[in-house]
Design a protein around this nucleic acid. Structure first.
Lengths: 201, 201
DNA sequence: CGAACGCGCTGACATTTGTCATCCGCCGGA
DNA sequence: TCCGGCGGATGACAAATGTCAGCGCGTTCG
């Protein structure tokens, strides 16, 4: 019997997936969490075999939870399930010790299969997400470029970005200009959109 | 026995919800669709009692499907389930004849209850979403302002927006300026974000 | 009918932006 | 040791954007 911890902020989805997994003979959902912190707490208490984590959780995101679990409870395998698969997240997840990564577009049978695969020590990455990650490539942005672009993504004017990043307005414009060049965008707002769609920020 | 048509683009979620609803004695999922067009096709063929539609579908969105069903198959009640509840969608949905509107944060019992309520001719709107809709108020944007702002939301420069909207660049800037004023934003990009968060575009 | 209003346009102006050259200090690798 | 790259900054200039005033046209409503 494989003991599973399930984390997803949407109650309906969480309950529904739990019901589906519970139908399998060899799987048992022993805990459900709605937030990252709760997932960690439950994992410490319940010591599940596999943690199935949604990527977007209210506090810590799924990858952060997985990374924490990887060091704290190495026996607990982790896998991520997500609606919007961004290439950057996949890379972060794999370096964080995640062994399974798949979109919510898969069927329940595949999910159950992957749970078993992961529990047995194997790995599984959604082929479509993997292809996107490979085609998107590594982020060409430097750390500060990414910082500044993240702030710019909210539509703030340069002066505000400068204040929030504790930089000179001129420097902000330089970084933005560089980021615009690297993303082949027409302006920083498009650059922010592109970088976000690639998971670079 | 209440016959249900289920539409959601995410296979895992769709199957999971179907499994949950199927556990109820008086509910039966007779069809599942992954797109809006498929949902319409199935509805015509199967004549379900209730259509449970996800808001975001690849082609037609849930509200569009509901509106079409409302005129074409008035006997089929419709309800919307959504992850990101934007106030504008709720309003559109209600004018489109939708009788139930709830977030995916609700529990399965509530979903089943609402299906029964809707089938019996009642209405149900998620209290939290209703509160947000009321506090957000009506859109202050005129039709063209909303059009232009929608195009601007993608980060395109004014010239491109003008071409795509078949307007003069000067006119585009006037509309954007007006929209910026109405949303109390610092620039059009922030205005686009605000309008989107309120469901105005 | 006339006023009000939305749509669409123009022109002018001040700001904000994007871009480029150039500078400094620091750190890591050849 | 020296070079290159990154973080950070300045100044200057061109282009894009935001703002305002004002004009014409059609529709709607009192």
């Amino acid at each position: 019997m494989i003991r599973i911890l399930l984390a997803d902020d949407e109650h309906l989805i969480r309950g529904a997936i739990a019901a589906l997994l519970g139908l399998e003979e060899d799987l048992e959902v022993v805990g459900q969490a709605a937030t990252g912190a709760e997932a960690l707490r439950l994992a410490r208490a319940l010591r599940p075999d596999v943690a199935v984590l949604d990527l977007q959780l209210p506090d810590l995101d799924g990858v952060a939870v997985a990374t924490a679990l990887h060091t704290e409870l190495p026996a607990c395998r982790t896998m991520i399930v997500t609606s919007h698969g961004l290439p950057g997240h996949l890379k972060r997840a794999l370096t964080g010790g995640v062994r399974g990564f798949l979109g919510k577009t898969v069927s329940a049978e595949i999910l159950a299969t992957v749970v078993r695969t992961v529990h047995a020590g194997g790995r599984y990455v959604d082929p479509q997400l993997a292809a996107e990650a490979i085609s998107a490539g590594d982020s060409p942005l430097t750390a500060r470029e990414a910082d500044v672009l993240t702030l710019a993504a909210e539509g703030a004017p340069v002066d505000e970005i400068a204040r929030r990043a504790a930089l000179s307005p001129g420097t902000v414009r330089n970084y933005l200009s560089s980021a615009v060049g690297k993303t082949a965008a027409a302006n920083r707002h498009e650059a922010a959109r592109i970088a976000r769609s690639r998971g670079w920020i």
